[in-house]
Design a protein around this nucleic acid. Structure first.
Ligand SMILES: NC(=O)c1ccc[n+]([C@@H]2O[C@H](COP(=O)([O-])OP(=O)(O)OC[C@H]3O[C@@H](n4cnc5c(N)ncnc54)[C@H](O)[C@@H]3O)[C@@H](O)[C@H]2O)c1
Ligand SMILES: NC(=O)c1ccc[n+]([C@@H]2O[C@H](COP(=O)([O-])OP(=O)(O)OC[C@H]3O[C@@H](n4cnc5c(N)ncnc54)[C@H](O)[C@@H]3O)[C@@H](O)[C@H]2O)c1
Lengths: 265, 265
DNA sequence: ATGTCTTTGTGAACGCGTGCACAAAGATGG
DNA sequence: CCATCTTTGTGCACGCGTTCACAAAGACAT
């Protein structure tokens, strides 16, 4: 789950559980595909399979939205697409700004998935003067000095942060101060925001580490009776890593502004 | 959570809850930062704040790993970095292949966060012959014909998919057949894989839609007593969308190859 | 050695999310 | 109009995850 809001009791949204909200886009995607193939109706079982979830879960999810199905038949695809879109707020236009037009920011700017669902890239913002004015994906990059002006003039409420981690918090603060109330953060940092502002993060590094954990378990399990050095069980007084501090490079940073690695032992 | 595994009972990993595993990288990042500032020890309260979680939760998470703290003092930073790294399997080298070197794939290839924690980009793979041999981020792109060879020769067990959605499943199938058992999917599709293979997805579009949902609620709440057209409550026989099918563009696809997947019916 | 003070580790309670299983709804055919 | 058959909507139980609250552990000073 590259997800991650800043804690909070969750489940608050007019009775619709957070877990359900997170699945609605999945259903919508599957439904859109059916719609394009002009499939008129779909059963919970079929749709659940397409979305990769349990059919009972899907029905319960839909029950939070209302009774949009017909027993013995299924759900009307078009109608459901409309209802979910409306519930997710996709029937309106959402201007979005992307801050930090580097490798990732540029890729995001050119991402078609943005425009496909009511999201419109209103502006690209970068602090590098050399970038200013240069078009990326057909949109001219604007300088971060104008951030506040851009946000307020275009009525932007959603911001995407793709800057180095070191400056993400200050960029976030400026976005929030300017009126942004939803932030999608790609920088590997924990952002702190005032109440009323939502933050979601996408963190490649975390996802890989989670995969590595499971990968390690798989590998350790098949070669269980083998010669497990210290794979599991008691760390066997595991040699504590050489006490740091000797690493003289004071201001060292990961190649990208990421939190510097560390390779114990 | 741009997260998302293919359901499954979760919590299986030698007693360590899945939710805890997902937070370990967060702790590790905070600890690494402390380590570089040569901070010797840290309390659960401090570390929890840095990681953006509840301190009781953090302590319970660590308790699954063992008793690595000292009451009255806190946790030894270096030791904890080592323990978590070991638990996550970051003390070993993980060769990773990236398939689909387009805008996103290229950005990922150049991402420093990869190398920073034991992940090594073993190969970049693309189906476009024009890309073959061209270096991206210093690594020459290889043709997808050689996918199987690359996987087996380098002993790759983690694959990243950054291809258009339409081919993601077949790319996935080839990766799995070649021996990959962990996949990080950036394409907006549900991948189906055999048991024993882990899939995590990062889906920008879903994250934005979740933000939009909450954003809509915020907006609808402040202007509650206003002129709510049909914001909430009974959809008031909500006008069903103009019955589709009239949209002549048969083979229409999301501007990016988004969605078209699905195949029930 | 003893007392104090800090902080861990965890028992217990609670709430959310999941999935089973089934009654009710309604379509469809005769 | 009735019987049958499909599929929804949901009551219910269970398990995971979160959080509170506190006893025990141990550092540190005297
Ligand atoms: N590249 C990836 O695949 C990838 C993947 C996951 C996460 N990330 C994260 O995304 C972020 C960006 O990655 P990248 O590879 O594009 O880095 P990058 O260095 O290529 O781009 C960063 C951009 O941010 C701009 N910038 C710096 N300070 C700024 C400020 N104060 N205001 C506005 N713009 C500012 C820079 O001018 C630069 O153009 C990093 O935090 C990285 O860790 C990247
Ligand atoms: N660009 C983004 O910011 C972004 C964000 C989120 C998700 N995505 C998703 O990531 C994927 C890639 O996005 P992109 O913008 O880089 O697209 P892109 O078109 O720039 O790149 C796709 C690349 O995949 C290659 N490819 C096609 N078929 C292949 C195959 N069978 N085997 C190997 N390579 C193949 C193509 O040659 C191309 O280089 C898409 O599914 C997109 O929806 C992109």
């Amino acid at each position: 789950m590259a997800t991650g809001r800043t804690h909070r009791p969750a489940t608050r949204s007019r009775g619709i559980p957070e877990a359900t909200v997170a699945r609605l886009p999945l259903y919508l995607r599957a439904l859109t595909a059916l719609s394009e193939r002009s499939v008129p109706t779909v059963s919970s079982e079929e749709l659940a399979t397409a979305a990769g979830v349990n059919s009972a879960k899907l029905r319960k999810d839909f029950s939070y939205l209302g009774s949009y199905g017909t027993r013995g038949v299924g759900y009307d695809v078009e109608y459901l697409v409309y209802q979910i879109s409306r519930e997710l707020g996709l029937t309106q236009d959402w201007p979005v700004v992307i801050v930090g037009i580097g490798n990732l920011g540029a890729a995001l700017a050119g991402y078609g998935g943005f425009a496909s669902r009511g999201f419109r890239v209103a502006a690209l913002i970068d602090a590098d003067p050399a970038m200013t004015g240069r078009p990326v994906a057909g949109i001219p990059v604007q300088h971060s000095d104008d951030l506040e002006k851009i946000i307020s003039e275009d009525g932007v409420s959603i911001g995407v942060i793709a800057t180095p981690a070191g400056v993400a918090q200050q960029v976030c603060d400026r976005l929030v101060a300017a009126g942004v109330t939803s932030i999608l953060n790609f920088a590997p940092t924990v952002l702190s925001v005032p109440d009323g502002v939502d933050v979601r993060k996408v963190d490649l590094s975390i996802e890989l580490q989670i995969l590595a954990f499971h990968e390690q378990r798989k590998a350790g399990e098949e070669s269980s009776a083998e010669e497990g050095p210290d794979t599991d069980a008691e760390p066997a007084v595991a040699a504590p890593p050489a006490p740091r501090g000797a690493t003289g490079d004071t201001g060292r940073k990961g190649p990208d502004g990421d939190v510097p690695a560390v390779m114990p032992a």
